[in-house]
Design a protein around this nucleic acid. Sequence first.
DNA 1: TCTGGAATAT
DNA 2: GATATTCCAG
Length: 297
Amino acid sequence: MTYFLPSMYCTPLYSSYPTISCPPDTLKSFEAQKTCLSGSMVTTACCFPTFFFVINEVDWTPELHKKFVAAVEHLGVDQAIPSRILELMKVEGLTRHNVASHLQKYRMHKRHILPKENDRRWPQSRDHMRRSYYPHKPIMAFPPYHSNHVLPAGPVYPVWGAPSNHPAGVQMWGPPGYPLWQQAESWHWKPYPGMPADAWGCPVMPPPHGSYSSYPQNTSGFQSSAVVDNSYSMPQNSVDFHPAEEVIDKVVKEAISKPWLPLPLGLKPPSADSVLAELSRQGISTIPPHINGAHLC
DNA sequence: TCTGGAATAT
DNA sequence: GATATTCCAG
């Protein structure tokens, strides 16, 4: 899955580092930030002079998974092959490979779960009970913060998270008539490691003492002060809640103004080929020198 | 050459 | 553990 973030999140500082490696902790906290910022999950990111790439990993949200299951059920188990599932799902950006991979897992899960269900039709683990209270991931794409950000005319990223009739913590393996599947404890919505489950879509809240300069530049600090610490609890209905964009802005601006401090965003570059292909797809014919010929991986 | 599916890598 | 990537048979 590919999408862009507004250029404001790509600083000149970043652009001087066509190849950026980051420690796992940084990348992890970057994940946490993205959760706050967009409500979407991805794992690989790269920053270029004018924009910020996030590529390649599909977030199989409950909503997306439901589409997948609906397609599989519609086709029937025997006819459910990646290309046809993809056709039925009608999800822009999703590839046959993505679907094939998910289908593989889906089939493995069915093989693994169904025999168990004969013995225990209504598993009610404590985890499941807790997950039932997880809020929805927010429906939230990046607003155009600045008019000069480099973004395609239309959204190029899928925005999952339409409210469903099911708790967001529940992955629905199987057709709607089979609640036992959606309660399979081995297949569930997972929060980020180190983050409380109810931090999904957690808006970035200001620190209690009101000074943004107290935000550490390293992301573990950012994470602990703004994301993981849910003492800044969000409203009950997180779907309708918008993050404190101005707070995000300030954090980013501070990162720009203090380039000597560690970067707040963990960046892991994609392959040069995928970047060039994406640029081409976006109709960008002029390849910035940072990208063209840069050592990207 | 393309596709699906299993195995393997990340 | 989840997803992507690779490999191979059809």
